[in-house]
């Protein structure tokens, strides 16, 4: 049986797709067969970040409609042969997804994969609902600003009441906080909420802090998940997150702007 992870937020543009790509790659690199699914029908994005946009033949909606098999639609990642991508359709709208259809695909994938990562679209409408409905774990991606925190809180309420686990009275979805685009300098200037502020408001288990980093843009331009950029701070942050999720004990980093001596002398970023 696979473990289904939804990467969700409520608010748009906070780093869900960046995170989905990174942690899917991280889990696969650790030896777990992983599938990552783009639920953002109509806005296809994940395949660009994963650098497989030119190999898309069939998509999620084709499989739901029975126009292609899962095996035909799944794209094997070019960097890691344990990672597969199920891309979204650009030509349909989000009504093309149905709960039965999504449930069937996840059930089929569960037989063969260890982890299934669902990249949720923004908002709390149908697409986001379907992405989270079958989840076992939720990675709630939040930026350190009030509107993002509020939307995450809203999403947490939906996870707790509208998921399959909630409806069937099972153990609730495990919820994790991923605080993304964090900038200690801006926190110090009072322009952003601090880690403590966000945790105090959401009271949620912190899985990791991902710093604001130029490496994310570079990674998406080159179509490789940022976690493969092992020298980058964001890449390391995602590696830590995957390790913590798998039960390793890693101290939190990237929370205060203090750079080591090395950083001070060489101004590394």
């Amino acid at each position: 049986m696979a473990r289904i992870i939804v990467v969700t937020s409520g608010k748009g543009g906070v780093g869900k797709t960046t995170t989905s790509a990174a942690i899917a790659m991280g889990l696969a690199k650790k030896g777990h067969k992983t599938a990552v699914i783009d639920f953002d029908v109509g806005l296809r994005n994940l395949d660009l970040i994963m650098g497989c946009e030119r190999r898309v033949v069939y998509d999620f909606v084709n499989v739901i409609n029975g126009e292609a098999t899962l095996n035909q639609a799944l794209i094997r990642d070019k960097n890691c042969n344990l990672l597969y991508i199920l891309p979204a359709s650009q030509t349909r709208d989000k009504d093309a997804l149905s709960q039965e259809g999504v449930g069937k695909i996840l059930e089929d994938l569960s037989k063969d994969f260890k982890y299934i990562v669902c990249d949720s679209p923004a908002g709390i409408e149908k697409g986001a609902h379907l992405a989270m409905y079958f989840a076992d774990d939720a990675f709630v991606v939040t930026n350190p600003e009030v509107s993002s925190v509020r939307d995450s809180d809203r999403m947490l309420g939906i996870l707790a009441s509208k998921s399959r686990r909630a409806e069937q009275n099972q153990e609730p979805i495990r919820e994790y906080l991923l605080l993304s685009r964090y900038s200690p300098d801006r926190v110090k200037l009072g322009e952003m909420l601090s880690v403590d502020d966000v945790q105090e408001i959401l009271s949620l288990h912190l899985l990791g802090v991902i710093p604001e980093s130029k490496s994310v843009l570079n990674a998406s331009n080159s179509g490789t998940p940022v976690i493969l950029d092992e020298k980058s701070d964001a890449g390391q942050a995602y590696s830590d997150i995957v390790a913590r999720y798998l039960g390793e004990d890693k101290p939190h980093r990237f929370i205060d702007g203090k750079k080591g001596l090395f950083g001070k002398f060489f101004g590394s970023k």
Binding site: R150, D153, R154, L156, G157, I158, A160, S161, P172, S203
Partner: peptide, 8 residues
């Protein structure tokens, strides 16, 4: 025993 979230 669980938090009551925004919108609930």
């Amino acid at each position: 025993t669980h938090p009551i979230r925004s919108g609930q």
